[in-house]
Simulated scan of single mutants.
Amino acid sequence: MKEVWLIRHGETEWNANKRFQGHLDIPLSPRGIGQAFRLAERLSRSQESFDSLYSSDLRRAAETAAPLAQALRLPLLTTPLLREIDVGELAGLNRQEAEARFPEFLAQAAQDPWNTPRPGGESMAQVASRLQAFLQDLPPGRHLVVTHGGVIRAALKLALDLNGEAWRRFHIQNTSITRILFPGKEVLCVGDVGHLETWADHLSDESLK
């Protein structure tokens, strides 16, 4: 059995400004760096042990994974299979700009959001295909996987055999943890951000060290 802890990367400035990033190599914002370190501190205090740490090879994911690698003393393995969806010509645009430039794509995507490719880019079905390739090669064990919101939604669709647009309704926050069992397809939790909640401030309390 494979227990996969899917973690979305920390916040970037483009996340905050609601711009499509896709394969563009956008770094973490100062807020995102802080989120990554809080995540690492939480997992370093966890009773769970992990067999490996994987990350998308895009900078925002690798920068999120780096504090985990240090805190958990795990080698960091990167792969393009875990990249966010390639948004093609949408990269750098916000929603309003995309609506003005690509109305036909948005109309098609409204009818079939899973199979419609972004202009010059990928469809969610293609993202799911490369994610499946990654999961199939993953050995049994408990694995940390730092990736992107679209990839995590694809994983949830696959695990839960979701129909229609249900996969789009999950709120996957930056540095949230989603735990899935493969090949059993059991979802243990979705979007856990306990390390970012107010009560988690004690994790950085010097008196507890």
Rank of each mutant, 00 (worst) to 15 (best):
V145G: 03
E84S: 05
A62N: 06
T12W: 07
D25N: 04
E99D: 09
D25R: 04
A125T: 06
I180S: 09
G32P: 02
A69T: 07
I7L: 01
K209S: 01
V151T: 15
E11I: 03
R73M: 10
K2A: 03
D86G: 00
N174T: 01
E89N: 08
N15C: 01
Q136R: 13
E11T: 07
R168D: 05
V145I: 09
E48W: 15
S56V: 04
R45Q: 12
F102A: 02
K2L: 00
F50W: 13
V87T: 09
A110G: 13
L208S: 05
A62S: 11
H9S: 00
D112W: 11
E48L: 12
E41I: 02
Q111E: 15
F105W: 14
L76W: 15
V146T: 07
S44N: 10
K2E: 02
L76Q: 15
S129L: 11
A40R: 02
D25A: 01
F50E: 05
K2I: 00
A98G: 06
L131H: 12
R38E: 01
L24P: 03
R19V: 02
R95S: 06
P103M: 03
A125E: 02
E48Q: 15
L106H: 09
T78M: 10
L162G: 05
L76G: 08
L81N: 13
P80W: 14
G121N: 05
L76Y: 15
S49L: 11
I180M: 06
A91I: 02
S46Q: 05
V190N: 04
R31L: 01
W199A: 06
T198W: 14
L203V: 01
S29R: 06
L106C: 05
R168F: 02
A107T: 15
D201N: 07
E186D: 14
C189L: 13
F50K: 14
E197S: 04
M1G: 07
R142N: 11
A62E: 14
L158W: 14
A16L: 09
Q111G: 09
R101D: 02
R118C: 10
A110N: 15
S129V: 10
A69C: 08
S49P: 01
R83F: 12
R168S: 00
N163Y: 11
R83K: 14
H195R: 03
S49E: 14
A98V: 00
H143L: 00
A100R: 15
L181D: 13
Y54P: 08
S207W: 10
V127T: 10
G22C: 03
L6G: 09
K209C: 06
I7P: 01
Q108R: 15
G32E: 05
W14E: 01
G149A: 03
R19S: 01
